Simulated scan of single mutants.
Amino acid sequence: MRVLIIGGAGFIGCNLAAHHLDKGNHVILLDNLSRPRTHHNLDWLHRKAQSEGRADHLSFHPVDIRDFPPLRRVLAETEPDLVVHLAGQVTVTKSVLNPREDFEINALGTFNVLEAIRTQPRPPAMIYASTNKVYGGLEDVAVVLDGMRYRYRDYPNGIAEDRPVDPKSPYGCSKCAGDQYTRDYARIYGLRTVVFRQSTIYGPHQFGLEDQGWLAWLMIATATGRPITIYGDGKQVRDMLHVHDLIAAYDAAWERMDTVAGEVFNIGGGVTNTLTIWSETGPWLEALAGRAIPVTYADWRPGDQRVFISDNRKAERLLGWSPKIGIREGAQQLWDWVTANRDLFS
């Protein structure tokens, strides 16, 4: 099997690449290395492939998805069976500051990927990493404060795919455009595409930043003594999905591609794997670090959801998938990776 991972040097991409190398598959990485520290992940993958005698199973192409000709050329030359499209501008804050760049990367870039696939003699299947931000701020969904955390009043299983999309930021709009184009290319052109509206993904090799990858960022800041700002009251709830569970979902979609092409799935930790931004995470991190962690509070950010929990029941039904790694076990793995690699964050 030949897998093309677009955004392959990123956090999810490098974990997915390692997974397919372990399975003996040929892995083609495409990335413009614009995200800070992605070269560390690329170096790690090359070392892994070399040490395991699989250097010929890994190739890298420094291509930007906004540049269509080289993108199409890579697909034509490598002839992948599956494309996993992970590349993108990934933060709400940057999209507000530079909406044109956000659009060009997420909307136009995804259109370019789809066109590059469509014009191949043998179009590969594609999995697109979308986001729960396509649902917007969910202002009409009743949320109540229950002790130190928020919860949905009327959605005990979380938010399902029948929720109308209503993005509330340039980032949400651009990802929603890619989301809808990916779905429609299955309907109009018969491409085998699947959309994953992903919740908070975490795990090793995640170089989290303040505005994206929040759990990794809090751990990095704690381990390196950097200042921490909590936006809102810290009682916001997110469902947390370990990257290895996400990869299992990708595998499940690939194995069932002929029956699930054109489908959209909410993919997250679900109701059993939730964590607050700070009211629960803070004390736990203080216990890990063995010291008090000072934080500064700031205003809520636009479009910030007080709760997001993914209803995974469609994925359970059609993909036979559910998360296996609990939040405490997975977060401990992330902490161990961060503290073992402090030199990467200097």
Rank of each mutant, 00 (worst) to 15 (best):
residue 96 V to E: 11
residue 271 V to D: 08
residue 83 V to P: 00
residue 217 W to T: 06
residue 48 K to G: 03
residue 123 P to I: 08
residue 199 S to M: 03
residue 172 G to A: 01
residue 270 G to E: 06
residue 4 L to C: 15
residue 21 L to A: 03
residue 195 V to A: 03
residue 125 A to H: 05
residue 313 R to V: 11
residue 307 V to H: 03
residue 143 V to L: 06
residue 339 T to S: 12
residue 325 I to Y: 03
residue 322 S to Q: 15
residue 253 A to N: 11
residue 287 A to M: 13
residue 220 I to L: 04
residue 138 L to A: 03
residue 286 E to Q: 15
residue 211 D to E: 14
residue 149 R to V: 03
residue 296 T to D: 04
residue 224 T to N: 13
residue 312 N to A: 01
residue 313 R to P: 10
residue 221 A to R: 03
residue 290 G to I: 06
residue 121 P to Y: 04
residue 343 D to Y: 11
residue 158 G to M: 02
residue 108 L to F: 02
residue 184 D to F: 13
residue 129 A to T: 08
residue 221 A to I: 10
residue 4 L to N: 01
residue 110 T to H: 02
residue 133 K to R: 10
residue 65 I to M: 13
residue 340 A to I: 02
residue 203 G to S: 05
residue 100 R to I: 15
residue 155 Y to V: 09
residue 138 L to P: 06
residue 71 L to K: 04
residue 221 A to Y: 09
residue 241 L to R: 00
residue 128 Y to I: 00
residue 20 H to G: 02
residue 340 A to W: 09
residue 223 A to C: 09
residue 47 R to D: 15
residue 158 G to Q: 02
residue 14 C to T: 14
residue 189 Y to K: 02
residue 192 R to N: 14
residue 113 V to F: 04
residue 237 V to W: 00
residue 207 F to H: 11
residue 148 M to H: 13
residue 55 A to H: 04
residue 40 H to G: 00
residue 253 A to W: 00
residue 179 D to N: 14
residue 253 A to D: 08
residue 150 Y to V: 10
residue 256 R to M: 08
residue 139 E to F: 11
residue 209 L to D: 10
residue 61 H to R: 08
residue 277 I to T: 14
residue 61 H to C: 01
residue 64 D to K: 05
residue 90 V to Q: 08
residue 17 A to K: 01
residue 278 W to I: 08
residue 37 R to S: 07
residue 34 S to G: 14
residue 148 M to K: 11
residue 106 N to W: 13
residue 24 G to C: 07
residue 250 Y to E: 08
residue 323 P to L: 01
residue 43 D to T: 14
residue 66 R to L: 07
residue 42 L to K: 00
residue 308 F to H: 10
residue 106 N to M: 11
residue 295 V to M: 06
residue 260 V to K: 05
residue 187 R to C: 09
residue 247 I to H: 13
residue 238 R to N: 09
residue 166 D to K: 12
residue 162 D to G: 07
residue 195 V to Y: 00
residue 336 D to L: 09
residue 18 A to I: 03
residue 71 L to N: 06
residue 255 E to S: 14
residue 276 T to H: 12
residue 87 A to Y: 04
residue 144 V to N: 07
residue 286 E to M: 11
residue 270 G to W: 05
residue 200 T to Y: 02
residue 185 Y to E: 01
residue 257 M to A: 07
residue 103 F to Y: 15
residue 289 A to S: 12
residue 225 G to N: 11
residue 292 A to D: 12
residue 99 P to N: 02
residue 79 E to R: 14
residue 159 I to Y: 05
residue 241 L to K: 01
residue 51 S to H: 12
residue 175 K to S: 02
residue 159 I to P: 00
residue 346 S to K: 15
residue 290 G to N: 04
residue 337 W to K: 06
residue 272 T to M: 12
residue 285 L to K: 06
residue 255 E to P: 04
residue 105 I to H: 06
residue 104 E to A: 03
residue 151 R to K: 15
residue 196 F to V: 05
residue 255 E to M: 11
residue 113 V to Q: 00
residue 288 L to F: 01
residue 343 D to V: 08
residue 137 G to V: 04
residue 139 E to V: 10
residue 107 A to T: 03
residue 273 N to S: 12
residue 141 V to T: 13
residue 208 G to D: 08
residue 95 S to E: 05
residue 112 N to F: 08
residue 36 P to N: 07
residue 183 R to G: 15
residue 305 Q to Y: 01
residue 157 N to M: 13
residue 246 L to E: 03
